[in-house]
Design a protein around this nucleic acid. Sequence first.
DNA 1: CGGACGTTTGAATGGACTCAACGCACGTGG
DNA 2: CCACGTGCGTTGAGTCCATTCAAACGTCCG
Lengths: 246, 246
Amino acid sequence: MEPTPQTTMSPEGPTLRIRGVNGWFPPFPSSPADQATVPSTDLVQLADISTVRTLAPGQMLYAQDEDATCLFLIRSGIVRISHLTVEGRRHILAFHWQGDLCGLMDEGRYVNSAAALCETEVLAMPRDRLHGLLLTQPLLQNEFLVKAAAELRNTQRMLVTVSGTDAAHRMASFLLECTHHADHYDPATHVVTLFADRRDIADYLGLSGETVSRALGQLEQIGLIRRNSAREIAIEPDALRIYVEH
Amino acid sequence: MEPTPQTTMSPEGPTLRIRGVNGWFPPFPSSPADQATVPSTDLVQLADISTVRTLAPGQMLYAQDEDATCLFLIRSGIVRISHLTVEGRRHILAFHWQGDLCGLMDEGRYVNSAAALCETEVLAMPRDRLHGLLLTQPLLQNEFLVKAAAELRNTQRMLVTVSGTDAAHRMASFLLECTHHADHYDPATHVVTLFADRRDIADYLGLSGETVSRALGQLEQIGLIRRNSAREIAIEPDALRIYVEH
DNA sequence: CGGACGTTTGAATGGACTCAACGCACGTGG
DNA sequence: CCACGTGCGTTGAGTCCATTCAAACGTCCG
């Protein structure tokens, strides 16, 4: 490819995401009106510089340490963001949904890996062209800023949860989180359909797969959930909410 | 130019200086030139909408759940960002330094609390006026986006560290982190001057104060550090780096 | 010299981990 | 239709690490 003029030590971009579902929040919005006003022309131009990619279940979107060329905006599906430590431990930092951004990079390389959990469509936005576009479209850039702040907020919450509560409480939090995704929760029957296997949930909550099982058993014994099958969990939303808040 | 007395945005306070220390990075810099190019007019305008506040050691900058009116840019000193859970557990999410932003909010209220650890100067930027300014100054907004991404990256790193390693390794990471702050590390003698007490370090690393002590003892026994006093730690930087990477 | 506070150290408890076996659902082939 | 294999989930036993409660130690300041 073309040699980058001078790369210097200038690193790169961020991962950003907003989870449209659950009442996320703008970080610096002066008024609700303002925040809604991303002109459709901006979006058209965003589409102009981007390409659409479709991922099969399990397919990797990008890999940790790989040269970062694009940021990604998720149009549908679920993306799992994971990080591998030098000791070989895998951490899942987030699950991303429609409307979320991903592709956080440092020094021109992706910091984490991203893979689709199910059939997933993303918008691939070349880094350079996106940067140029953001500088000419302040409202669009503001949208990105909002998403970044939302993602930061999410990661902070995760940090507090993981380092502050025991296995059962983390599992309860996770189940309530699942509740916000329409495709995986039936409000009528209160049944959650888990979109990740035990190993993924464990790596997300900072536990082992066995402990996730035991935590589910514990919650079931207290009567907060009932396991219809490994992936189908009937929950008591209100009781669960009270439980996580101790 | 009107002589705002103290608001001399000139000395180190002027540019939104990217925290050079520990792996900070711009997100979408197309070229090194671009990233440096926050026009000084932007900074003047930023100063115009802001006021300077000076905090005494221990003084609170803002409190969790309080109405959020301002974002803050730190000009000097150290700010401790903490979050209190409903169960009464306190988590320290970050220590912020010169050039860092703080004041993350949700639904118009601060998500966390912020307090100064030592005499600290901040620029208080009213939310509404800042929002307006960012929309008219794309380079400035991009600077904010860079900082948000950097902060996200940092929080992710913290998450991985806290949920993946034992007390001694977390402590070692923290000591190396201290190394990046000139005022608290002497490269000649390899002595780190801790800027937080045991309790704060514990809440930052997801440990108890006693465990922090024991972790220090452990590192000392291996010969990676030597405790001159409670706050003065002589370290073996290279050995420590090898240790944290297992 | 004596509090007061922060730090260190000790002993006992508890929670999560590892290792291992077992159960269960699904698919394949006989 | 049953025998078998495989992948995932669950359950059990033992170990290790961090926590809690408690006491001793220092250091700074009265």
